[in-house]
Design a protein around this nucleic acid. Structure first.
Length: 810
RNA sequence: GCCCAGGUGGUGGAAUUGGUAGACACGUUGGACUUAAAAUCCAAUGGCCUUUAACGGCCGUGCGGGUUCAAGUCCCGCUCUGGGUACCA
């Protein structure tokens, strides 16, 4: 019955490796995917989070997002859009530097090699990139402009230097990344790690906190990502209250969102790093307090704020005066209060804050309830209630009490309304070699000059060794010939900044460079930026939900305020792809030995199979495990598709069957809608259904075959090009219009109603869709099968949902 | 700890707005083809029960409650897994 049963025709074999090579060469030779500004067409800018070119090559996780965007790009292009879908390299980074230290190889050589591997692998997947737009953040032609943006930030007063706690390893004499610390010890060698203040460049992202928060509303991003960003920014409105210290003229300022509970403040807590600690601690307690502070420096913020562990702290011996009732309350030092949030000091209200409650319980401090409700013997009561033990607030609810207290504090000049953010300024420097040097000179007199545009780029000098200097400074501090210069602009002797920028810097603005990557005069031209921006679709891993996306938005907003870009936000729509796990359901890692190499998948099944499988696995956003059998499944689909449509014997109909026409138009509609909604798995399943239909039908018209080939082309572009040619057409199918469906073929005359009794499906009945509700009721009740379930009774209620369901309530 | 997700057959998943749970695919089993195997094709396939068969019944979307004519979908509580947690990116 089926042609392929005969297994005779050797030309009918699906030779995917030949086909894929042929078309990849064709696209490259004919510059099929070259893209330029074209005002005659609407633009569509699709961006992938560009990869860090690691030494282990492409991972099957990379092609997931890249295939998704490739499908959208090819689809949008067939829909008449001018599509910008570029690719490049986030090529500064820690692993390369660590490898350089280990092997003594220049990071740039390692990076170039890795990029070559990545590029070859990406090309073998048949993505429609315009490789003319390739960029690499570690290229000085690129980082010149990263430095230029830094100068803009600096000149706008958004960059400053400060002493910040870093992870210092005294044995290795280097600053460690959080990732390099395991259980409080250095990952390499297991040496101890302490927190030590060190001079760092900071960016005032907090100045943009409100804008970053407000503008989230207008973005077409997943709600959970917006929520995570909102929580990260952590805006809270409250009050700043001044507490006098007894027998001392010092003042402790605290931030609280619950000024209404002031009467319940029974003690105060200073963060161990708070400057007042040393000033107020009484001599007898000095030793314990100092020891405690010493211990706290070893801990990370994460460890310190862990609710599950027992609270720790020490008494300073000093007392503050609660301004509400003039009571003396003890001042403690405890590491559950962080110096980085608010003023680094709190008024503790153990009756109404769980952390304070636990602390008070542990140290036997008084717990005075000031709101009615709850049981403070068991836990803190954090809900609303009428105030008690609170003098002029008694009887009021939370909101009124907060207002009344704030006004009272303002009147007494001991408090004011204050807004606080959890968001902290961005530590923007690293003591490393493989990053952008800061365009900053430091003179002998301690003054600083940020370089001008004509002095950029400040390029990385070659060094012999990549180990940090030993003083905590980067290896750049050891290259005297680079380090010390006589500044040609001022004639003064200067030392260069030895810190480098974090990897985030390059990825904060790469989408802008993609608009105009070859520009030697400017970071980007106004024309290109105005035409292409904003990014219409941004796809990448959910692990970037907060940091990268917040940092990039911050830079973009600064550039917007400087009039350098035309949109307030860089990324209009965002989608996060889910992680691909190994076949064992665990995260892929070398140590587990469950890593899938895309090269071998392509070798065995072809790029189209890999692309199709990654899209067929499940929803783009979901975490899902790899399965070799799944690849075989879609591979089989491609073989069947090729063998059917490439065989002239099957493409010999004059007029198409109504059944096939209906299936075809259903498929067009579903594939189009599903691509728009990024539901590639169901689009593919629909194409499988259609192919199965064609195999059963035996033959189809050329027109049907051509339409189907176009539908398939964004997903399996190599196979589609080949079929397009076999069907007698000129390449490339990428230049064809995407097919349109016609409603007339989709019309249904009848609907098979599921009929349930008390919510349980009992039988189905096929009825004309033209029937009204009453006619449907009648048809159902008159059906023989209804008798059994009605049991002679009259139905209590009958629910008819047209073209959906009938439910009889008995 | 805190913030954010997710949990549906043996497996990946489908069910787009509360309306036929399990589309499509894998796997498994049986059959065809073959000297044989592979490949390919055909058929069956959530579990339990009933029945010679046909027909049919009960249960079923992590667990426990609730709302509704109707819940995988909405609400409350729990549990397990994953991502982020500011120097991995």
């Amino acid at each position: 019955m089926y042609f392929y049963k005969k297994k005779s025709n050797p030309f009918m074999e699906y030779k995917f490796n030949e086909i894929e090579k042929k078309w990849q060469e064709y696209w490259e030779k004919n510059k099929t995917f070259k893209v330029e500004v074209d005002h005659s067409k609407p633009k569509f800018f699709i961006l992938d989070m560009f990869p860090y070119p690691s030494g282990s090559g492409l991972h099957v996780g990379h092609p997931e997002g890249y295939t998704a965007t490739d499908i959208v790009g090819r689809f949008k292009s067939m829909k008449g859009y001018n599509v910008l879908h570029p690719m490049g390299w986030d090529s500064f980074g820690l692993p390369t530097e660590n490898y350089a230290i280990k092997t003594g190889t220049h990071p740039n050589i390692i990076t170039q090699k890795n990029i070559q591997v990545f590029k070859r692998q990406l090309k073998s997947l048949g993505f429609a990139y315009d490789w003319n737009r390739e960029i690499a953040t570690s290229n000085s032609k690129y980082y010149k402009w990263t430095q230029w943006i830094f100068t803009k930030l600096y000149n706008k007063g958004l960059a400053y230097e400060d002493e910040i706690q870093v992870n210092w390893c005294p044995d290795l004499k280097i600053v460690l990344a959080n990732e390099e610390i395991v259980d409080g010890k250095s990952e390499l060698g297991g040496h101890k790690v302490i927190r030590k203040p060190m001079r760092q460049w900071m960016l005032k992202i907090t100045e943009y906190a409100d804008k970053l928060l407000e503008d989230l509303d207008e973005l077409d991003w997943p709600d959970n990502i917006k929520e995570m960003q909102r929580n990260w920014i952590g805006k809270s409105e409250g009050a700043n209250i001044k507490f006098k210290i007894a027998d001392n003229n010092q003042i402790i300022e605290v931030f609280t969102t619950r000024s209404d509970t002031l009467f319940g403040a029974t003690y105060m807590v200073l963060a161990p790093e708070h400057e007042l600690v040393a000033k107020i601690t009484i001599p007898e307690n000095k030793k314990t307090v100092e020891e405690y502070i010493q211990k706290a420096t070893v801990k990370s913020d994460l460890e310190r704020t862990d609710l599950a562990k027992e609270k720790t702290g020490v008494f300073t011996g000093a007392y503050a005066i609660n301004p509400a009732n003039n009571q003396k309350i003890p001042i403690w030092v405890a590491d559950y209060v962080l110096i980085s949030y608010g003023s680094g000091a709190i008024m503790a209200v153990p009756a109404h804050d769980q952390r304070d409650w636990e602390f008070a319980r542990h140290f036997d401090l008084p717990i005075i309830p000031v709101l009615e409700g709850g049981d403070i013997e068991k836990e803190a009561f954090i809900e609303d209630g009428a105030h008690i033990n609170s003098c002029f607030l008694d009887g009021l609810g939370k909101e009124d009490a907060v207002n009344k207290m704030d006004n009272w504090l303002i009147g007494k000049k001991i408090g004011k309304k204050e807004i606080n953010y959890k968001l902290r300024d961005w530590v923007f420097s690293r003591q490393r070699y493989w990053g952008e040097p800061f365009p900053v000179l430091k003179y002998e007199d301690g003054t600083v000059r940020c370089l001008d545009e004509d002095e950029l780029p400040v390029t990385l000098p070659d060094v012999d060794k990549y180990e940090p200097s030993g003083t905590g400074e980067s290896p750049l501090a050891t290259i005297d010939s680079w380090l010390y210069i006589t500044d040609p602009k001022t004639g003064k002797k200067a030392r260069r900044e030895t810190n480098t920028m974090p990897q985030w810097a390059g990825s904060c603005w790469y989408y802008l460079r993609f608009c105009d990557p070859g520009n030697d005069e400017k970071a980007w031209s106004d024309e290109a930026e105005k035409y292409w921006m904003p990014v219409d679709l941004y796809v990448g891993g959910v692990e970037h939900a907060v940091l990268h996306l917040l940092y990039a938005r911050f830079w973009h907003k600064v550039l917007y305020d400087l009039g350098l870009v035309s949109t307030k936000e860089p990324f209009k729509k965002l989608v996060n792809q889910g992680l691909i796990l190994g076949e064992d359901g665990e995260k892929m890692s070398k140590s587990r030995g469950n890593v899938i190499n895309p090269d071998s998948v392509i070798e065995n099944y072809g790029a189209d199979s890999l692309r199709l499988y990654e899209m067929f696995m499940g929803p783009l956003e979901k975490v899902k495990p790899w399965s070799e059998n799944g690849v075989k499944g879609v591979f089989g689909f491609l073989i069947r598709t090729y063998k059917f449509f490439a065989n002239p014997d099957n493409i010999n109909k004059e007029t198409e069957d109504p059944d096939t026409l209906k299936a075809l138009h259903q498929t067009i509609k579903k594939v189009e809608n599903d691509i728009e909604g990024l539901r590639f798995n169901t689009a593919i399943s629909q194409m499988m259904i259609f192919t199965n239909h064609c195999l059963k039908a035996g033959t189809v018209t050329r027109n049907t075959a051509e339409i189907f080939t176009k539908l398939l082309s964004p997903f399996a572009p190599h196979l589609a090009e080949e079929l397009w040619e076999v069907l007698g057409n000129e390449p490339s199918i990428a230049n064809e219009k995407f097919p349109a469906y016609s409603e007339e073929f989709l019309k249904e005359d009848t609907f098979e109603y599921p009929v349930s009794f008390n919510g349980k499906l009992r039988f189905k009945i096929e009825l004309s869709i033209s029937l009204g509700k009453e006619e449907i009721e009648e048809a159902v009740l008159n059906d023989k099968r209804a008798e059994r379930w009605l049991d002679g009774k009259k139905p209590k209620k009958l629910i008819v949902v047209p073209k959906r369901i009938v439910n009889v309530v008995v």
